[in-house]
Amino acid sequence: MSELVTGEAVALELRPARLPSRALAVLLDLAVAVAVYVAVTIALVASTSSLDGAAQTALTIATFVLVLVGGPIAVETLSHGRSLGKMACGLRVVRDDGGPIRFRHSLVRGLIGVIEILMTFGVIACIASLVSARGRRLGDVFAGTLVVRERVPFSSGGFMPPPPPWLAGRFSGLDLSAVPDDLWLAVRQYLTRAGQLDSRVGWAMAERLAADVAARTGAPVPREVPPPAYLAAVLQERQARETRRAFGGASTGEGAAPVEPTAPVVPVVPVAPASTAPPPVPPGSPSVPPSVPSSQDRPEVSRHVPPGGRSGTGFVPPA
């Protein structure tokens, strides 16, 4: 692992390519270059058979230089460090600071590669790669380049550790509506890569993220809760609320308890009061005729309710 620091103070973790993968990439590039060189040479010999020997020798040298030296330089320059062999092996040539190479880098690598690869059959290049800590040959040392691996082995990142069980439901009353989405994304990325970070760097990052989340929620981080556990618990609470909002009830607000359905209201039909008997009249009153029949001889009182909604008095005048 090679760690580089850019001008913005960003640490880049580059995986230098080792000798076996680089040797395989060089063999593939040489096989393609030799095949093109042979085809071009046959075409030139067939088309320049009428020339003298000196001209044919000059054309042969020019073809060698253009195909076996200029060809790899042009390919690396145009593809930004990815020749056919390096693409097949998942490699790339970059600068020491991690940036893409330019023509001058490819030119220095190609010219020195003629000596350490073509003329010595790769012996010098192999020795230099074994001695170098980052597997660089002489062309890489003089050009200021590095061959790195683009395809890295798959690691089971993306797994977020769950919060401790004693924090279950601890932050159910927090107001998470003011926390922006980019802060949630930063918390998720930290939790998925917490196991790959340095302990001190990871702890400092967790404290900073926890302080940002607490500032948006308006509640400080409890002292007894570690910052990584706080972030995991708060993120789990947000995911639980999103799940309830999506599947459990659309009317439930952020951080609010679900509303219980109320019982249906049964309409009450008003009942007319029963007819009451007339108030008792004191004996000897002149307003009561003496021939008023008794309650046994009185006809049946109609209990019909008038359309106005009032009940009758039940008094029937004497016959």
Results as ranks from 00 to 15, higher is better:
Gly139Ser: 07
Met205Ile: 02
Pro165Ser: 10
Leu146Gln: 07
Glu150Phe: 00
Val225Gly: 01
Gly173Trp: 14
Gln239Trp: 14
Asp212Gln: 15
Ala206Asp: 10
Gln196Leu: 04
Arg200His: 05
Ala186Leu: 12
Arg149Leu: 09
Pro226Met: 05
Val213Arg: 05
Pro164Ser: 11
Ala214Lys: 09
Leu209His: 03
Gly173Lys: 15
Ala186Arg: 12
Pro162Tyr: 03
Gly157Glu: 10
Pro153Asp: 02
Asp181Gly: 10
Gly157Asp: 11
Gly173Pro: 11
Ala229Asn: 08
Leu138Val: 11
Val131Ile: 14
Val141Asp: 00
Ser177Thr: 05
Ala143Gly: 10
Leu235Ser: 14
Gly158Asp: 14
Val225Arg: 03
Arg238His: 15
Leu138Glu: 02
Gly169Ala: 12
Phe171Ser: 06
Val201Asn: 01
Leu191Phe: 08
Ala210Asn: 07
Gln196Phe: 05
Pro228His: 07
Tyr190Trp: 13
Leu174Pro: 06
Ala214Asp: 08
Gly202Ile: 05
Gly135Phe: 10
Ala211Trp: 09
Ala168Gln: 13
Val152Lys: 06
Ala168Val: 15
Gly169Glu: 12
Arg136Ile: 00
Ala215Trp: 00
Phe171Gly: 10
Phe154Val: 04
Pro161Arg: 13
Pro153Leu: 03
Leu183Asp: 04
Val152Asp: 03
Phe142Gly: 01
Pro163Asp: 01
Gly195Phe: 12
Asp175Gly: 09
Pro220Met: 10
Tyr230Cys: 02
Pro226Asn: 04
Leu146Arg: 05
Pro228Ile: 04
Ala211Pro: 06
Val131Arg: 08
Phe154Met: 01
Ala211Asn: 13
Asp140Ala: 07
Ala215Lys: 01
Gly169Val: 02
Val131Leu: 14
Leu183Phe: 03
Arg136Gln: 13
Thr217Cys: 13
Glu207Tyr: 10
Trp203Gln: 15
Ala204Tyr: 06
Asp140Ser: 07
Ala168Glu: 15
Glu207Asn: 14
Arg216Lys: 12
Ala219Gln: 13
Glu207Leu: 14
Gly218Pro: 09
Tyr190Phe: 15
Ala229Val: 03
Gly202Val: 06
Arg223Gln: 13
Met160Glu: 13
Pro226Val: 07
Val141His: 12
Val201Thr: 03
Trp203Tyr: 14
Ala133His: 02
Ala204Asp: 12
Phe142Val: 11
Val187Asp: 04
Gly157Ile: 05
Met160Cys: 10
Ala168Thr: 15
Trp184Ala: 04
Val147Ala: 04
Val147His: 02
Pro161Lys: 13
Gln189Arg: 15
Leu185Thr: 13
Arg200Cys: 00
Leu191Val: 09
Arg149Pro: 02
Arg238Ile: 09
Ala215Leu: 09
Ser172Thr: 15
Tyr230Gly: 01
Ala143Trp: 10
Gly135Gln: 12
Gln239Lys: 11
Phe142Met: 09
Ala186Phe: 02
Gln196Thr: 05
Gly157Leu: 11
Leu167Thr: 13
Ala210Trp: 05
Asp175Lys: 10
Leu176Phe: 13
Ala214Phe: 06
